[in-house]
Design a protein around this nucleic acid. Sequence first.
DNA 1: ATGCTGACGTCGC
DNA 2: CGCGACGCCAGCA
Length: 121
Amino acid sequence: MPIDFLKLNEKNKDFFESVYQVVRLIPRGRVTSYGAIANYLGAKSGARMVGWAMNAAHHQKEYVPAHRVVNRLGVLSGRHHFPEEQSMQVQLEAEGIKVDNDQILDFKALFWDPSKELSWD
DNA sequence: ATGCTGACGTCGC
DNA sequence: CGCGACGCCAGCA
């Protein structure tokens, strides 16, 4: 049971919470995509909602490494929404992730798929 | 209440 | 392979 404490089968509020939980599980130096999270949570086409959840992420008490979440192309599509636009890239680089022109280098290798990493060990 | 927008993704042309 | 349309659903005008 990958998801156990998440349980989003209640309401969208839990969905947001679930998103934060998953994002916090992202290992340092790794990244994932909105779609991967959405898919993992069962919201197939809810990728946008994941992004929306991120919008309120910094609003959360527990720190949410939103900078580790990018779109499926490995592009920092959300950098514009950070307190300081460049902070996203800065934080990524601080973890050893190379970013070039808002694009994560070797994204494929750094990609961390929750449904793959968390389900069935 | 209605319609547009958006940190996305997939499908069709 | 590039571009547009649609789906998804929560805010906001």
